[in-house]
């Protein structure tokens, strides 16, 4: 999980609208939402919409197992056969409520850190959620600005709130470039002293 290779980070919002293309060179769809598993932070897949300006969302979705490669310009899949019904990836009712954008981030000590504006992903062999970009509240020194808050690599998050360990506030970064190191530092700190947050 924590290899010393430099972290390739991207925002979830950058994936929205990215074309899904088969290895045969056909455009299948565009990425709509990023779906992740809250417990492990791993990307489970993507919901899709049809390409174009007045695009409609689609009834099928792309599970992570069907992804051949996620690049700057496209998400590649072997062929259309890898798509599964959207309700199998994320049941509609659940998906509607589970969007983390606009949610508040609380520390486990009960401080409100701000509102989630984006989610930071790490791209390696799998794609994982490693942090939130938040519109900072007064609890952080940078109130009003957008900052990045790292997440532990195993989370225990309830469905309603986004709770991070209080120690995360010490590893906040203001730019995405420096955030990779902050995530690493935060996670190794959690591994070493798991009880210092108590």
């Amino acid at each position: 999980m924590s290899t010393p290779t430099p972290m390739l980070l991207l925002r979830a919002s950058e994936l929205t609208g990215r074309p899904v293309v088969t290895l045969g060179g056909e455009l299948v769809a565009e990425i709509k939402d990023v779906v992740f598993d809250r417990t492990g932070g791993r990307i489970a897949g993507f919901t899709l919409r049809n390409p174009g300006l007045f695009s409609r969302s689609r009834k099928d979705s792309l599970p992570w197992s069907g992804v051949h490669g996620v690049g700057r310009d496209a998400v590649m899949v072997a062929d259309e056969a890898v798509l599964i019904p959207a309700k199998e990836l994320a049941p509609r009712k659940q998906a509607h409520k589970a969007n983390v954008l606009e949610d508040r981030v609380l520390t486990d000590k009960g401080r409100d850190l701000g509102r989630v504006v984006d989610v930071v992903l790490h791209s390696g062999r799998s794609l994982d959620v490693v942090g939130y970009e938040v519109q900072a509240s007064e609890a952080l020194g940078t109130a009003g600005r957008r900052v990045f808050i790292p997440l532990p690599n195993t989370m225990a998050v309830s469905g309603e709130n986004l709770i991070v360990p209080a120690a995360a506030t010490e590893f906040v970064s203001e730019d995405l470039a420096g955030f990779g190191a902050a995530v690493e530092a935060f996670r190794s700190r959690l591994r070493e002293g798991t009880d210092d947050a108590l």
């Binding site: 979830a12 598993d37 998906a95 589970a98 959620v129």
Partner: peptide, 21 residues
């Protein structure tokens, strides 16, 4: 309306056996 609709979401699925911290 179109702009709002085109904005993607980030959906966090909590598995059934989750533990509330």
């Amino acid at each position: 309306l179109q702009r709002r609709r085109r904005r993607g979401g980030v959906i966090g699925l909590s598995d059934p056996g989750r533990s509330d911290s």
